[in-house]
């Protein structure tokens, strides 16, 4: 079942240096129980997309120029703020990253959790506190009834992080937006967070939109991946296919450039030259061409759209739905086929 469908989203920000499009021509679907990852670097548009799904673009000073975001038979972008507020947290929730910034230090954990339920589900304080204790227990906080009365500073760092996740999950939202959910966390706590997200997907069929720059994390946890560059999706594929056999030179370059844990240490890493594209000064043609070793004159002139592979002789499976925005993708995919044969 499709939970969320984003169609042709385009978001503009007006800056002193002129307008820029943080997200352009973005479309994707999130199925029940699925984790879809938006991967990219700074300026790629991945966090703006998350804001759009939460209806927060206007608060960030941006304008949704075109596009529709369908959830439960309604176009979210057509809702007014009051209607959107009802959905936020109860149906579509953000998984916060930084517990010290997202929890109110003056309110007990119980009050902060219960508030979500009182507002969104109309529960009484007493009912809401009972539910809140259950939510804390669900995320593995021992003795949850007594922890309801604790203030954030009275919990350990790991428990605060769990309490924060409990707050995102307490109203059982169907769509979870996780923007770099583990970046600031120690590895053991990060693993707990990922386990909790996985459980929400498996047990309740929640869908997760994971926004991350961490390729290894995405490779290990997501079902499908949309790689973004300068506001557009430049490649979309199943997670395992994407990294094993990238079609876009940017995906391939990112995956090659990372330092690795296993195997022989290489003398130097395969760095990608240059810096991520500036949205206020986008190159002509393909935004990645100044950093791409395969760039041709056409790439410098013309902007490629997402499409499938033209030739089947590369030996790669032409799986449905897989697309990349690159004029030279056959060469990239073919190069992999050759290395595989060799």
């Amino acid at each position: 079942m499709t939970l969320l469908q984003v169609d042709n989203l385009r978001v503009r920000y007006d800056t002193p240096r002129g307008p820029l499009w943080a997200v352009d021509q973005l479309s994707f679907k999130l199925e029940s129980g699925e984790m879809v990852a938006l991967v990219g670097e700074s300026g790629s548009g991945k966090s703006t997309t998350a804001l759009a799904i939460l209806g927060l673009v206007p608060y960030s000073g941006g304008v949704v120029e075109t596009g529709e975001i369908w959830y439960g038979g309604r176009n979210l972008l057509a809702l007014d703020e009051r209607e959107f507020r009802k959905l936020r947290a109860s149906e579509i929730a953000l998984v916060f990253q930084d517990a010290s910034a997202a929890l109110n230090p003056f309110l007990t954990i119980g009050v902060q959790l219960a508030e979500v339920l009182e507002v969104h589900r109309g529960l009484s304080r007493r009912e809401a506190l009972t539910e809140s204790a259950r939510a804390l227990g669900d995320v593995g906080i021992p003795d949850p009834e007594s922890r309801l009365h604790a203030y954030p500073h009275e919990l350990s760092g790991g428990q605060r992080q769990r309490a924060l996740i409990a707050m995102s999950l307490v109203a059982k939202p169907k769509v979870l937006i996780a923007d770099e959910p583990t970046t600031a966390l120690d590895p053991a706590v990060a693993l707990t967070v990922l386990d909790l997200l996985k459980r929400e997907r498996e047990e309740r069929g929640a869908g997760v939109v994971l926004v991350s720059h961490d390729l290894e994390l995405v490779h290990a946890t997501a079902n499908r991946v949309h790689v973004m560059y300068a506001g557009r999706v430049i490649e979309q594929a199943d997670a395992h296919e994407l990294f094993e056999h990238p079609w876009h030179p940017y995906t391939a370059a990112l995956w090659r450039a990372r330092a690795r844990l296993g195997g022989e240490r290489r003398h130097r890493l395969a760095a990608v030259p240059g810096a991520p594209a500036e949205l206020t000064a986008l190159p002509t043609g393909c935004a990645f061409h100044p950093r791409c070793e395969l760039a041709t004159d056409r790439c410098r002139r013309e902007r490629p759209d997402l499409s499938g592979l033209r030739r089947a002789e590369t030996g790669m499976s032409l799986s449905s739905g897989r697309r990349a925005a690159c004029f030279e993708k056959e060469r990239v995919a073919g190069a992999h086929a050759e290395t595989l044969e060799a």
Binding site: A253, A257, A259, A271, V272, A275
Partner: peptide, 15 residues
């Protein structure tokens, strides 16, 4: 730093 830039800096430090 951005992922694509991290390797540049590590290579620079190595050299």
């Amino acid at each position: 730093l951005d992922v694509s830039v991290q390797a540049q800096i590590l290579n620079l430090l190595a050299s």
